[in-house]
Design a binder for these strands. Structure first.
Length: 350
DNA sequence: AAATCGGGGTG
DNA sequence: CACCCAGATTT
C-alpha cells in the first residue's frame, strides 16, 4: 500500500499531472523565468529558510546594487550586510560575498553549471546546488528543500525520511526534459497545497498517487521533530554618546549576528572604561527590548549616558554620527533599541 | 545526529 | 503561544 510510486508508470503520471498543474497555477515571482545564473543563485540563497514574500522585498534592491558577480565581489562587506539587513542568517550574505570572489577569481566570473562546482562555493549546500544547476542550467538533478521533504514524506507515507532516502526518491522523480520546472513544481506544491498542518488535498493534482492520503496519515507526515526550549538571556547594552555621536560595536564574524553592528554589551561604566571615556551626567535606563530569535529568548536592558569625549576606540568599535547610523547594518533588535533612545530624547526635549 | 544561526507569517 | 519557512555549517 505504501508503494504507489515504485513503478515507472506511476512516476510518469505524477510528473505529467504535477507539471500540468504548475504550468497552470504557478505564482508570478520576480525570479520566475529568470535565466541569469547569478540572479537565480541570489534568489535561492535568499530563500534559504525564508518565505517567498519576504525575499520579494529584498531581491530587486539587491540586484540594483549588485547586478552581477563582479559588482558583488568588489563590494565592501558593510554594503553587502546592509543590503541583507533584516533578512536574518547573516552568514548567508557573508558567504555569498565570499563565493562571488571565488567565482570571479577561480571560474573566470562564470557561475559553475554543475552541482559539484556549485557545492564548492561557500553557502551552497545540496539544495542550492541542485536548484541552481537544474533551474539555471537544465541539469537533471534534484533539489530537496523543506517543501519537497514534506511532499515526498506524504507521497510515500514515510514518517521519518532520511536525507539519503529523500535524495534517492527525488532523483528518480526528476522530469529529465524540464528538471528546473519539475523541482519548482514540487516546491510550489508544498508551499501552496501540500502545506504543513492541514494540507488541501481536495485541490491536489496528485492526491490519487499519495500514500499518506490513502492511509489518512497526511497530517502526521513527516513526523514532528522535538523542539528544544530557547535559551533565556538578559543582555545589558550601553548607549554612550557625545555631541551627536554614538558608540557602536561590530560583532565578531563568527557566531550570532556575525559582522553586524550593535550597541556594546555591558553596563555603561564598564563600556566607557573599555573605550577610555568618562560618563557625564545621569545614566538613563531605557525600556527593555525583548527579542525572540528561534533559539534565544533575549531581553535587552539598554542604558544611555553622555560621555565627555570620543577617544579613538578599539578597532571593532566606532563613534558614529547619528545621521550615519542608518547607513550601517543593524539587526532588528538593535534598531528597536535605537528607537527607544530616540524617543526618550524627544520626550526629554519636549 | 544535534546545535547554531534571524526574522516574520500564520493558525 | 507554537510552528516552520525554496538550509548551510559546525560539532
Amino acid at each position: 500500500m505504501k508503494a504507489r510510486l515504485t513503478t515507472p508508470g506511476a512516476r510518469s503520471r505524477l510528473r505529467t499531472r504535477l507539471l500540468a498543474h504548475y504550468d497552470r497555477e504557478a505564482r508570478d515571482l520576480p525570479w520566475r523565468g529568470e535565466t541569469d545564473p547569478y540572479r537565480i543563485w541570489v534568489s535561492e540563497v535568499m530563500l534559504q529558510q525564508t518565505r517567498v514574500e519576504t525575499v520579494t522585498r529584498y531581491y530587486g534592491p539587491w540586484l540594483r546594487q549588485f547586478p552581477d558577480v563582479e559588482s558583488l565581489a568588489d563590494a565592501s562587506e558593510d554594503r553587502v550586510l546592509k543590503a541583507w539587513e533584516g533578512l536574518g542568517y547573516y552568514r548567508r550574505a557573508r558567504s555569498l560575498h565570499r563565493a562571488a570572489a571565488v567565482v570571479r577569481d577561480r571560474h573566470g566570473g562564470v557561475v559553475p553549471s554543475d552541482p559539484a562546482g556549485l557545492l564548492d562555493l561557500p553557502g551552497v549546500g545540496a539544495y542550492t546546488a541542485g536548484a541552481v544547476a537544474s533551474i539555471a542550467f537544465g541539469v537533471v538533478t534534484p533539489a530537496v528543500d523543506g517543501n519537497v521533504k514534506r511532499v515526498l514524506s506524504r507521497l510515500y507515507d514515510e514518517p521519518k525520511p532520511t536525507p539519503r532516502w529523500l535524495e534517492e526518491r527525488a532523483a528518480e522523480l526528476v522530469e529529465p526534459r524540464r528538471p528546473g520546472d519539475w523541482n519548482q513544481a514540487l516546491m510550489e506544491l508544498g508551499a501552496t497545497i501540500c502545506v504543513p498542518r492541514v494540507p488541501r488535498c481536495e485541490r491536489c493534482p496528485v492526491a490519487e498517487l499519495c500514500a499518506a492520503r490513502a492511509a489518512g496519515t497526511e497530517q502526521d507526515r513527516p513526523a514532528a521533530a522535538r523542539k528544544k526550549p530557547a535559551r533565556v538571556l538578559r543582555i545589558s547594552v550601553a548607549l554612550l554618546y557625545a555631541d551627536d555621536r554614538l558608540l557602536l560595536h561590530r560583532r565578531p564574524s563568527d557566531g550570532l549576528l556575525g559582522g553586524m553592528w550593535a550597541f556594546p554589551e555591558g553596563d555603561v561604566d564598564e563600556v566607557a572604561g573599555r573605550v577610555g571615556a568618562r560618563l557625564v551626567g545621569d545614566v538613563t535606563a531605557l525600556d527593555e527590548v525583548r527579542h525572540r530569535f528561534t533559539h534565544i529568548d533575549a531581553t535587552y536592558l539598554p542604558a544611555a549616558s553622555r560621555v565627555d569625549s570620543t577617544p579613538t576606540p578599539p578597532d571593532d568599535h566606532r563613534w558614529v554620527a547619528l545621521r550615519d547610523v542608518e547607513g550601517l547594518a543593524l539587526p532588528v533588535a538593535q534598531q528597536r533599541i535605537l528607537g527607544q533612545w530616540t524617543s526618550s530624547r524627544e520626550s526629554e526635549g519636549a
